[in-house]
Write a protein that binds this DNA or RNA. Structure first.
Length: 418
DNA sequence: TCTGGGGTCCTAGGACCC
DNA sequence: TCTGGGGTCCTAGGACCC
């Protein structure tokens, strides 16, 4: 068994959504930019530029809070459809350098350069680690030249080490943690730096006086089990710089650039209302619209679901879910009545509703040629054919249509023709 | 810190079967 | 009829990631 080398690399696009917005509007370059939505809306920061970080703005923070901290920032809506092609292009560039790639998310991918050192060695190169470092710098240069996007790469002996290193390398840097030096790099870092330690676990660790990854590495496993359960060992290994280096073993990552193309275990859509809602017809319309949308996405992927789940969040943020497992389906005509049942069963409080969500899980592939829906098959085929050409909103169930939308449509048509 | 939307995985209890 | 244990499925909730 050969000793491990730092050949697992994590490429992470710096402030990805902001960077794409700047490519599309160069006047944003150098300005404080926050992507997520208008400051008044009920949303969170999905990405923010380095200009606003000294003021405390972070992704995940409410837009209201972000607007308090940096009212002078440029606030942009998140345009998810826009970013995918850039992500795909970066992936293609990485693939020209490395044979083994695992896509982790829209702005993050892993590469395994094990055995590639000699392929890249040129006269005058030093150690194998130096060869890899040179290649990684070349990759970030290529990404910048070919897409305009800044990126950082971390390298280490495991995925977790590479991920942490990429964070330390930002912005626009490359950092390789040589085999054997992991603990030295990690031991002083705050516990939140390790993937898998979130706000809740960090709070429990702090309560025990544990602040750094070095302390986590020295904490008895039994104590960590009480906090992390089944994850205790991977977390402690990670804190010590050990961990999985296998890019193939994990489930194939969800491919966000091609939202309907990946293999996923569930399909869900949820929506927060602009204002908390009591009106039953508004709730009904949202429920129907969400049901249509997840069913449409399932049919596009060729899957049916055995389980449907309704998610409901009250105005006071208390959330519940109600699910039912049944004969596999991807027809809104079958699922909508089930969802209404689940809603009636789950809506036990009189508090207004903040959010509704619908999730399909227990997915299985079906053969598109089979008669799936009985009498309603021609209907679904017709609806989906129209949507394939004109988009989801081209056809809607009557329940999902908002009478106000129709008035607005009419008004805008009136303006356009007048 | 008045908190989006898309996912993944784990836990724990109860039903049901052998 | 009572009792026990193990396995699997379903349901509900929650932590975490980007």
């Amino acid at each position: 068994m050969n000793a491990p080398h730092a050949r697992i690399c994590c490429l992470d696009l710096d402030t990805f959504f902001v960077s794409v917005e700047r490519l599309l509007d160069p006047s944003l370059e150098g300005k404080p930019v926050i992507v997520g939505g208008r400051p008044g809306s009920r949303g969170v920061v999905t990405a923010c530029s380095y200009e606003v970080r000294p003021f405390g703005v972070r992704s995940g923070m409410s837009l209201t809070k972000a607007a308090e901290l940096t009212p002078w920032a440029v606030f942009l809506p998140t345009r998810h459809d826009t970013y995918g092609p850039y992500s795909k292009r970066v992936r293609e560039i990485a693939a020209t350098y490395c044979p083994v790639i695992q896509v982790a998310s829209i702005d993050e991918l892993y590469m395994d350069f094990t055995g590639c050192e000699n392929m890249y060695r040129s006269p005058g190169d030093g150690s194998d680690d130096h060869v890899i470092l040179r290649v990684l710098r070349e990759i970030t240069r290529s990404v910048r030249q070919q897409t305009g996007l800044p990126s950082s790469i971390g390298a280490g002996t495991s995925k977790k080490m590479a991920k942490v290193a990429s964070g330390l390398a930002k912005p626009a840097g490359v950092l390789l943690v040589p085999a054997g030096l992991e603990a030295r790099v990690l031991s002083g870092l705050p516990v939140r730096k390790l993937p898998g330690i979130g706000p809740v676990a960090a709070g429990k660790l702090h309560a025990l006086g544990i602040e750094t990854l070095g302390q986590v590495a020295r904490t008895p496993l039994s104590a960590l089990r009480r906090i992390f359960g089944a994850w205790a060992e991977p977390v402690q290994d990670g804190a010590g710089g050990r961990g999985s280096a296998d890019l193939s073993r994990d489930r194939p990552a969800f491919q966000e650039h091609d939202p309907e193309g990946g293999i996923v275990g569930s399909i869900s859509n949820e929506r927060t209302f602009r204002e908390d809602v009591r009106d039953p017809s508004t709730i009904d319309r949202m429920l129907c619209g969400l049901c249509e949308r997840v069913c449409w996405r399932a049919r596009k992927r060729g899957v049916r679901a055995r389980t449907v789940t309704l998610k409901l969040r009250y105005a006071d943020f208390h959330s519940i879910s109600r699910s039912r497992t049944m004969t596999p389906t991807c027809s809104e005509l079958e699922l909508y009545p089930v969802l209404k049942d689940l809603y009636v069963a789950g809506r036990t409080r009189r508090v207004p509703i903040r959010l509704l969500g619908v999730q399909l899980s227990n997915l299985g592939f079906f053969d598109g040629q089979l008669c799936l829906f009985g009498d309603s098959q021609p209907l679904h085929e017709g609806v989906d054919a129209i949507r394939a050409r004109y988009g989801f909103d081209a056809v809607r169930l009557a329940t999902a249509r908002d009478p106000r939308e129709e008035r607005e449509d009419g008004a805008s048509r009136g303006r356009a023709s007048g």
